[in-house]
Design a protein around this nucleic acid. Structure first.
Length: 201
DNA sequence: CAAACGATTTTCT
DNA sequence: GAAAATCGTTTGG
């Protein structure tokens, strides 16, 4: 079943990031159905987090989406090429977001392979935020979409990830954030081959 | 209006 | 393992 808005509107973004592990991200664009289990996430705690685009309550046309109430999609283009998919959490005007970094392909794998121009499944298909977004067909035009809508949403299929299988680590690619780069806001499923390697492991 | 930079991935040595 | 690719967003003049 689809996760309700109340799931996203809670205030503890770190807790939500943990709970998203094992959930299933589904996209349905142009009649193409693809789905994958979330295996890696990163929390971005808005105004108090230097690594967040919304640090210091900065509002720009791009970050405006993060100020919406929880349950919206925030898609951001990085390095001019890569589409990074985030889930907006918390209530209106609190710009919290969770970056989905990696998924394990479940359904529509042929379509994913086609989008990535690959012929067989390998970790690089969806391990990493940019790669994952491309596999699911996520684009910057999808930013601001509600996760309650028909095109993109997250399901709970009853998969439970035990605490012993969740690893907390520092986030990737945020060295510029000074002290905040040390926060253990990255979560991934232990031993899952589709977890991205990141840079500084 | 112009310049610098980045929540990354891919490819080559 | 290291370096390049590449362009929208942000920031400064």
């Amino acid at each position: 079943m689809k996760l309700p808005v109340s799931f996203y509107e809670r205030k503890d973004v770190v807790k939500i990031a943990r709970e998203l592990l094992g959930k299933v991200l589904v996209t349905k664009f142009n009649g193409i159905y693809t789905a994958g289990m979330i295996v890696e996430t990163e929390a971005y705690a808005g105004v108090t987090d230097r690594a967040s685009h919304a640090y210091g309550n900065r509002r720009t046309p791009r970050t405006e989406v993060m100020y919406m109430h929880g349950g919206a999609a925030y898609v951001y283009l990085c390095y001019g090429i890569h589409h990074l998919f985030n889930v907006v959490t918390n209530v209106q005007d609190i710009p919290h977001a969770i970056l989905i970094r990696a998924i394990e392909p479940l359904e529509g794998i042929e379509s994913m392979l086609e989008r990535r121009d690959k012929i067989k499944v390998q970790p690089s298909l969806t391990a990493g935020p940019g790669a994952m977004s491309m596999s699911l067909g996520i684009n910057t035009i999808h930013t601001g979409l509600s996760l309650q809508g028909p095109e993109i949403y997250i399901e709970d299929r009853g998969v439970k990830i035990g605490n012993k299988d969740i690893i907390a680590a520092t986030r990737v690619g945020v060295a510029y954030a000074m002290d905040d780069a040390l926060r253990p806001y990255r979560f991934y499923i232990k031993g899952n081959p589709f977890v991205s390697k990141g840079k500084g492991l």
